[in-house]
Each structure stands twice: as structure tokens, then as C-alpha cells.
């Protein structure tokens, strides 16, 4: 089962890409020109997140360099170690509902400090990849139509985030240990 799913992980991207291209050719879409048109946005998306990356990566690296994480992990994160959750991933779990760019920044900091093939990197990749910024979505969508009484929307969003974190921990233990 695990081997099959790992195989699927390798195949899914080439299959999706080929399918999109084949469908585009059938529908007579000018693939090359359309691709280039879309690819331009890659530049804007990346440049747009650069300031956020600088802010987050610098502040988190300073925090780590000061030895604060070691101080904290010794005292507070005994429980996390017990359920095999690397202490580095805790800041990620705390910001993922607040800011997507910050989460991406912390994620790349974890990848660079623990190595791209470490368990911490993989767990935080899954957490980052499966999250959407609850507060941002709430602000944009309800803001656009002037909703002030949000009822249970935020509670459900945060519960789903929390559920996602536990699911990520559980799934990663199955796949990567």
C-alpha cells in the first residue's frame, strides 16, 4: 500500500501535466503561447512573496540563532518529542491560519535549517501544502459582500485547520518513518 502510494506520488504530476496538454491540443488551444502567457505570472507571484520571505526568514533565523528554540524545546516541547513531532514545526502550526506568506517563509526556513530530506521538512511540507489561510479567506470573502456577523464560520475554519495538523502528523508518520 505504502509502496503503491509512493509510486502514485511520482506518477501523479506527469499524468496531470500530460492530460492537460493533450486536452489542450484536442481543444486546439495554442499550447505554447498560452503556457508563456501563464508562466509570466510565476515572476509576479514570486516577486510578490519576496518581501514576506525576507521578513519571516530573517526574523525566524535570528530567533533560532539566539538559541531561543533550544531553550524552548527543552522545556516546552517534551510532549511534541513524545509524539515524534520535530519542535521546529511548531511555529509553522501557529502561523498557518494567520498568514500564507509567513507559513511559506517558515517552511523554507525549516527546509534550509534541517535539510530538504529531513522528517521535519517533509512534515512541514505536508502541513504547508494542505493549508489555506483561514483568516485571509474569511476577510476577503466576507469582506467582499459586507458580512459582519460571521456566526460559526471562523470556528469551523479553525477546527478544520487543527484537524489538518493532526492528520498531517498522522499521515507523515505512516509515510516517512
Amino acid at each position: 500500500m505504502r509502496e503503491f502510494l509512493s509510486l502514485l506520488s511520482i506518477w501523479i504530476l506527469p499524468v496531470i501535466i500530460s492530460f492537460i496538454i493533450i486536452y489542450g491540443v484536442i481543444k486546439k488551444v495554442p499550447c505554447y503561447e498560452t503556457f508563456v502567457e501563464g508562466a509570466k505570472n510565476g515572476l509576479f507571484v514570486s516577486i510578490k512573496i519576496l518581501p514576506y520571505l525576507v521578513a519571516i526568514i530573517v526574523s525566524v533565523s535570528m530567533f533560532r540563532a539566539s538559541g531561543a528554540i533550544e531553550l524552548l524545546s527543552e522545556k516546552l516541547f517534551g510532549i511534541l518529542a513524545h509524539i515524534k513531532v520535530p519542535a521546529e514545526t511548531l511555529p509553522l502550526m501557529l502561523t498557518r491560519s494567520l498568514s500564507g506568506s509567513a507559513t511559506l517563509g517558515i517552511f523554507s526556513d525549516i527546509v534550509n535549517s534541517t535539510g530538504a530530506d529531513s522528517y521535519a521538512a517533509k512534515l512541514s511540507a505536508v502541513i504547508t501544502g494542505s493549508s489555506e489561510t483561514t483568516f485571509y479567506v474569511l476577510a476577503v470573502y466576507f469582506g467582499a459582500i459586507g458580512i459582519k456577523k460571521i456566526k460559526y464560520a471562523l470556528i469551523v475554519g479553525l477546527l478544520a485547520d487543527l484537524f489538518g495538523i493532526f492528520a498531517a502528523i498522522f499521515v507523515c508518520r505512516y509515510f516517512f518513518t
Partner: peptide, 14 residues
């Protein structure tokens, strides 16, 4: 990101 957004643009147009 450029590559992926390019591919997806084809999916959008088609």
C-alpha cells in the same frame, strides 16, 4: 511557479 502557472493556463483556456 512559472512552469506550473503556464500549464494550468492551458487547462483554463481549453
Amino acid at each position: 511557479m512559472g512552469f506550473w502557472l503556464g500549464v494550468v493556463k492551458i487547462a483554463e483556456k481549453s
